[in-house]
């Protein structure tokens, strides 16, 4: 089933270690397989998924895992926060590195304020997020 050369093999700068050798060799993929798409296009294609669907489908493939969270900028879905421990919250934040805004805290048990700044790259945004967290705490 592998017959067609990959059409968009542009490499990202920030590939996880270990995948470089796989990606740099020219691979061929079936035309009806989503494996044919490069990271950039795959990221765009998956950017319309709900946050819930992103977590449910994270383990589809390594490429999928690499790109499925990069387009998450808002975390606003109430369902996400149901029954969520600090540990789970930390893991979630680690995966959504580009998040700018967090809203709708149903459960206010994220007492560890270091979770966000320790795990998000976008520091300004993290501060904004933290202020939201603090504001929510202040109201409880």
């Amino acid at each position: 089933r592998r017959a067609i050369p990959k059409c968009d093999p542009r490499l990202d700068n920030e590939m996880p270690s270990g995948s470089d050798s796989v990606m740099s060799s020219r691979q061929v993929y079936a035309k009806d397989s989503m494996d044919r798409f490069g990271d950039d296009l795959s990221e765009v294609l998956l950017s319309y998924l709900s946050l819930k669907d992103r977590f449910i489908t994270e383990c589809v493939s390594k490429q999928w895992q690499r790109v499925v969270f990069t387009s998450v900028t808002d975390i606003t879905e109430d369902i996400v926060f149901q029954n969520m421990s600090d540990k789970s919250f930390e893991l979630m934040v680690k995966k959504c590195q580009n998040v700018r805004r967090v809203e709708s805290f149903d459960n206010a048990f994220y007492t560890n304020e270091t979770i966000l700044p320790n795990n998000c790259n976008q520091l300004d945004s993290v501060l904004a997020v933290l202020s939201v967290v603090k504001q929510v705490f202040g109201n409880h």
């Binding site: 397989s33 989503m34 294609l45 669907d53 489908t57 994270e58």
Partner: peptide, 21 residues
């Protein structure tokens, strides 16, 4: 594509989009 993924499991998504695990 996202509308077709909605509500599916990893394995169902792999089968539908012919993605190698």
């Amino acid at each position: 594509i996202c509308s077709k993924i909605r509500g599916k499991s990893c394995q169902e998504v792999r089968e539908m989009l012919k993605i190698t695990n």
